[in-house]
Design a protein around this nucleic acid. Structure first.
Lengths: 230, 230
DNA sequence: GTCTATAACGAGATAGAC
DNA sequence: GTCTATCTCGTTATAGAC
């Protein structure tokens, strides 16, 4: 009985994975807006109605792809953090930034899915939130460690941002000084500005040596969150 | 004869404008990927073949929309710059940043068109480059003025980025120090990271007081390009 | 119970003949 | 410029195979 259930479950997982894989190929070729269940089914030699055993609607398939993509960058960021766990905070910050950029360059369509223009007519459900938060949590962890270790430097917070900083600390950045939380969120958004511009072609004819440029910019972001020079 | 030609030219311009307006509505409703000449024609009560007298292809219509959008942000940035021409450089920098953000919040779909995910199957032609450069040129101008006036402070450039900085100065940032050019390009990309994250929903549950947060972040960007505190 | 296939719906896009 | 025949799409109901 358990073996039968195990086999069924395994088969189900395999089909689910195949569907998502085909959907990702579609994503790359046609874009998220044109993702179609029928085309996915066709590519797999299935009939469209059969897909509904695995995903109750097209939007649920999209949601699964989005969560997978967030988990994929999140994992890349966490792996990078763990690989340099002994390095000083600025070096760890830069390593994670580079891991996120490397992931984006390796998965441009999944990057566009989660950090690019929203898909028309689709609204991401709450279930995407934990996966979406993973990358940010890695950065928060680095700053928290620095705060509890060597300390943060060069930060300040104007009076009109103090409530916001306090709320951030309470909501998602425990044990981080409010001025660091505010700087952190800004740096996080700015990092994806650098990556998005490179990926989406805004750096054409503007930045040539992109590795070096990015490493330098990531280092300045680290300074901006109080990590000092690494 | 001249009046007849003038009337014809005027009529042609009006129809062209109506086509682009309808296309922008489509952009908002369905996204750039699904922009179709037929749907635009239908909305205008025309037949699709008639549109080809104005735009030889769907891609040409897209290109026109992209150039219009770039010109629109560029104009907003230039207007903001001119409105605070007497203010010190950091204040001018922040004013332009806020103008770009205001434009983005007012034109989210056009923002997505030019700064969001690339449209699958579409490749922007060279003709978009001058319009795309306008916003950046405004920032370069502010930094150049500061350099030639009160001066820039706190900048440095590692050896491995010096060739890149020199190239930037030669290519598009004349009369700006190379270290400022590099910082400028980074700040430019980071600005759109802040705006894109706000616009595309990444700030949900993360940033509440977005005006204040943005103003502060824009000020830090100004410091990052050597403008000092305003 | 779990899955796949057939068929159909209503809506929309598209191609081509006229 | 119009009309029609033929596609696509998401989704559901149903029937049967394992």
């Amino acid at each position: 009985m358990t073996t039968a259930q195990g086999a069924r479950a395994r088969a189900r997982q395999e089909v689910t994975a195949a569907i998502k894989e085909a959907a990702r190929r579609q994503l790359a070729a046609e874009g998220a807006a044109k993702l179609s269940l029928r085309a996915v089914a066709r590519e797999l030699g299935m009939v469209s109605s059969a897909l509904y055993r695995y995903f109750p609607s097209r939007d649920d398939l999209l949601t699964a792809l989005i969560i997978d993509a967030y988990d994929s960058v999140g994992e890349a960021a966490e792996r990078a953090r763990d690989a340099v766990a002994d390095a000083p905070p600025p070096a760890r910050w830069i390593a994670v930034c580079e891991a996120v950029r490397d992931w984006a360059l390796a998965h441009p369509h999944e990057y566009a899915l989660i950090y690019g223009s929203p898909v028309p007519g689709y609204s991401a459900p709450e279930t995407t939130v934990p996966a979406a938060a993973r990358v940010g949590m890695v950065f928060i962890g680095i700053v928290r460690d620095a705060h509890e270790g060597p300390g943060l430097s060069g930060l300040s917070l104007p009076a009109d941002l103090r409530p916001e900083g306090a709320r951030m600390v309470a909501d998602f950045a425990a044990d981080v000084p409010p001025e660091a939380a505010v700087a952190l969120v800004a740096a996080w958004a700015q990092l994806f500005g650098l990556i998005g511009f490179e990926l989406f072609g805004q750096f054409n004819r503007v930045v040539e040596d992109r590795e070096t440029f990015f490493r330098h910019a990531a280092g300045r972001l680290a300074e901006g969150v109080g990590l000092g020079r690494g």
